[in-house]
Design a binder for these strands. Structure first.
Length: 799
RNA sequence: GGCCUAAUGGCGAAAUUGGUAGACGCGUUGGACUCAAAAUCCAAUGGUAGCGAUACUGUGUCGGUUCGAGUCCGACUUGGGCCACCA
């Protein structure tokens, strides 16, 4: 009987949905909880691609296993539907973002259900619905009142093509992360979130997370914590002074100039009359440069002398003050001291402008700066010290002189949080005519309807055209609303919290529930969010922790990044390459179970792997093979309620391996073990029925449709999801005799059979007595015989 | 340039974490069944030599540690990812 995937999958899909089979009673605290989460999708117009089901299948397998293991499982899904991508897409299709989004969501849901994911669909959250973004706005308001959201006027990343500003995290190589359009620096009045206030905790709390190393590294690098010294330099002949930040205070005796950022507030004041014209021209030139030009690879260092001199506080030497655009106004104090002998950039700069290079460490500086560790020279009281000691000693001396201090700095900048776009959460702020600023307390502040959604391109949000929405009168006070909207990332900062209590209109979520369900036990999604979503969400979570909303410090205990599914040629799937596989087609042709099985069997979940039609067909073959075993009389008649022990070893080993491999998301090896089991069953004369019942439970996690079908063919009326996970008998895994490899000088020569706890001498005797081995050791001196229990015998010979 | 990560048959990969390299699957070849095909089943399948048992060789390259290295150490090559003037 051939397996009819279309009929079977349709049948169970309808039954599961009708019965709300996978609904979670979050108030049931009687069982241990397990919260397994996918990064929710942005519902594009193209629908799911085959990449989506990879991560989703992984979490679905875990959800199904955990249910069988007796956990109360929370496995939700939702829609990341606000933000730039959704808006761009809608505009491209000339559709209203809302209608367009809802249509796409319906299509996505249909596809997810087609694939048999055991989500609780009553728990969906949609970030662009007022019932959801009411609380996104609420959290923003709370942050505003706690001085974590503020307006600042400063140069920001502005993308003319997208018509909006972007966060640092959204700018890559001077281009927009989305679309790859040029980004320029432009001073604008914008909202920021004070993520820097959490920099230290965001870095240090990474320790307690079960996350991929590479992602932790990326966050650490992005936060960029460094320990250094702040040093005060007086400007010669004035009462002015400025601070520099350095991680190499030990090189202070070798400082031969200082450089200020062109934007440094002191520049105009200290520049001498003689240099004024040149300096002003240079500053103008810097301003006109794009971000890419200022930060591009191997860019030549430029700068200009201000005519002023600074006093080195450690030896009162006068050194020239330069300005240079390689000094960033936004990092440290926007000023650096330069010791060209021991810093590559300073070395290049000094050579170019003919500035003294004084070595203060023993090392060759004839061709380039010496940046390694060595004893100090030419440095008075730190002579002879290595870097670490010298830094401490000199900083302590500066403290004594009142000219410096130890200082910690971060690369992380505050999060630029406003966008000049239509399709986002309105920022619930009112600017009153009397100059005061107020928070809109009547939330949600609903996004108004507009005739024109497109950004003006001048840096103004489209919401300025919503006249009646824009102007407010609160208790007689007139004002205008903030017209910028929140960025794409806002809604995803806390959606995992809302899943726990999605219909609560009184609060973010019931505290009792949050305490029970958080943190998320397993979070699966792409690595592209390593420093965007995953950093922002941790920031909001920590804020909500401080406010007592949540009770755990970190939102996502274990994180896993699935790899990408590539085209059959090993390239990224894309329309232009014509190598896109549509999951709907696979489901139609082979069934959802096949797609799930194949994607899990392809290789390690974290790897990027090429699609292969043959491999997909092979997975379907395995499903047929399993199905036939349970349905064809040739095999079913061998099923027995009595265990004749034929399959004891392979069964118990399979349960053990599958359990362990599922737990660590190594589905490819779990599946290969299931294949081995099925191959053995085909060969067996007597098949112990309970083994087959338990096997199908494990198999069901990957292929839930055929799993459910077979479960019912076996005569059960209940649903397989809420049965119990198989256990294994360790005693069945120990064999009496084992095959042992025998090597001579490390080369395999024979295998012998020995008892598991056979005496060492007896094993060695057997090994030496082997005919094949004798050939190689005859007439040679045996230096020693190494025996590793249960592993190997190695005979070492000489001559 | 810095950091991270990988490299194993014709292909996707596995390897008890230093102990029989290539499990499992795909593909290929041969065979069975069939009038024939599909499906299914059986067998072979890293390379070289040999009818064969078998021998030699083999995990990107070079070197090292070890009784023993795909696995550990050092240098390099190539691919992927992230950051990129952060003082």
């Amino acid at each position: 009987m051939a397996y009819n995937h279309l009929a079977v999958e349709k049948k169970w899909r309808e039954i599961w949905l009708k019965n709300k089979e996978y609904k979670t009673d979050v108030y049931d605290f009687s069982k241990p909880k397990y919260y397994v989460l996918d990064m929710f999708p942005f519902p594009s117009g193209q629908g799911l691609h085959v990449g989506h089901p990879e991560g989703y299948t992984a979490t679905d397998i875990i959800a199904r296993m955990k249910r069988m293991q007796g956990f109360n499982v929370l496995h939700p899904i939702g829609w990341d539907s606000f933000g730039l991508p959704a808006e761009q897409y809608a505009m491209k299709m000339n559709k209203h973002p809302y209608e367009f989004t809802i249509k796409n969501i319906n299509n996505f849901r249909r596809q997810l259900q087609l694939l048999g994911f055991s989500y609780d669909y009553d728990r969906e959250v949609t970030t662009c619905e007022p019932s959801y973004y009411k609380w996104t706005q609420k959290i923003f308001s709370m942050m505003y009142q706690d001085n974590l959201a503020y307006v600042d006027y400063k140069p920001v990343n502005f993308c003319p093509e997208l018509g909006t500003v972007l966060a640092n995290e959204e700018v890559i190589d001077g281009k927009s992360e989305r679309g790859g359009y040029p980004v320029i620096r432009k001073p604008m009045k914008q909202w920021n979130l004070r993520i820097t206030a959490y920099a230290d905790r965001l870095a240090s709390d990474l320790d307690e997370l079960d996350w991929p190393n590479s992602t932790i590294e990326m966050q650490i690098n992005w936060i960029g914590k460094s320990y250094g010294t702040e040093i005060v330099f007086d400007v010669k002949g004035t009462t002015d002074s400025f601070k520099v930040y350095t991680t190499r205070a030990d090189t202070l005796f070798g400082a031969t100039f200082v450089t200020l950022a062109p934007e440094h507030p002191l520049v105009k004041k200290i520049t001498t009359k003689e240099e004024k014209d040149k300096v002003e021209a240079y500053i103008k030139e810097c301003e006109s440069k794009s971000d890419l030009e200022r930060t591009g690879t191997n860019k030549e260092k430029t700068g200009i002398f201000t005519g002023a001199y600074a006093i080195n506080p450690i030896n009162n030497k006068e050194i020239p003050i330069y300005i240079g655009d390689y000094v960033l106004a936004s990092y440290g104090s926007g000023a650096v001291m330069a010791c060209p002998a021991h810093d590559e950039r300073d070395y290049v700069f000094a050579k170019k402008y003919g500035i003294d290079i004084i070595p203060v460490l023993e090392g060759d500086i004839s061709k380039e700066a010496f940046t390694g560790d060595a004893k100090h020279i030419n440095s008075d009281f730190i002579n002879g010290m290595m870097i670490d000691e010298a830094k401490k000693t000199i900083t302590n001396k500066l403290i004594e002189l009142g000219k410096g201090n130890f200082k910690v700095n971060y690369k992380l900048r505050d999060w630029l949080f406003s966008r000049q776009r239509y399709w986002g959460e309105p920022i619930p702020i009112i600017f009153y005519k009397d100059g005061t600023v107020g928070v809109e307390d009547d939330l949600p502040l609903v996004l108004p309807e507009l005739d024109e959604y497109k950004p003006s391109g001048t840096g103004e949000s489209p919401l300025v055209h919503a006249i009646s929405w824009l102007h407010v009168n609160k208790n007689g006070k007139e004002g205008v609303r903030e017209t910028n909207t929140m960025p794409q990332w806002a809604g995803s900062c806390w959606y995992y919290i809302r899943y726990i209590d999605p219909h609560n209109d009184k609060e973010i979520a019931d505290k009792k529930l949050l305490d029970h369900w958080l943190p998320v036990d397993l979070y699966v999604g792409g690595q592209e969010h390593a420093v965007l979503h995953l950093l922002y969400a941790r920031f909001w979570h920590k804020y909500l922790y401080d406010k007592g909303v949540v009770s755990c410090k970190e939102p996502f205990k274990k994180l896993f990044h699935q790899g990408m599914i590539l085209g059959s040629n090993g390239e990224k799937m894309s329309k232009s390459r014509g190598n896109v596989i549509n999951p709907d087609d696979i489901v139609e042709k082979y069934g959802a179970d096949t797609l799930r099985l194949y994607e899990m069997f392809m290789g390690p979940l974290e790897d990027s792997l090429p699609w292969n039609d043959g491999g997909c067909e092979g997975s379907r073959k395995f499903i047929d093979r399993v199905y036939r075993l349970y349905t064809e009389s040739e095999y079913v008649t061998r099923f027995s309620d009595e265990n004749l022990h034929e399959l004891d070893y392979v069964y118990n080993y399979t349960v053990k391996k599958v359990t362990k491999d599922f737990e660590s998301l190594q589905f490819n090896t779990a599946i290969s073990q299931m294949m081995i089991f099925i191959n053995e069953v085909y060969k067996a004369k007597s098949i112990y029925k309970p083994y087959m019942e338990n096997f199908i439970k494990m198999f069901d996690c990957i292929c839930p449709f055929v799993g459910e079908e077979i479960w019912h063919i076996l005569g059960h009326d209940d649903m397989i999801t809420y049965t119990s996970w198989p256990t294994y008998d360790e005693s069945k895994l120990t064999k009496n005799t084992i095959k042992l490899a025998v090597q001579v000088n490390g080369k395999l020569r024979d295998t012998i059979e020995v008892n598991v706890d056979e005496d060492e001498n007896s094993v060695k005797e057997k090994a030496l007595g082997s005919e094949k081995v004798t050939k190689f050791i005859e007439g040679k001196e045996i230096v020693k015989v190494i025996y590793v229990k249960g592993r190997i015998v190695n005979i070492v010979i000489k001559g």
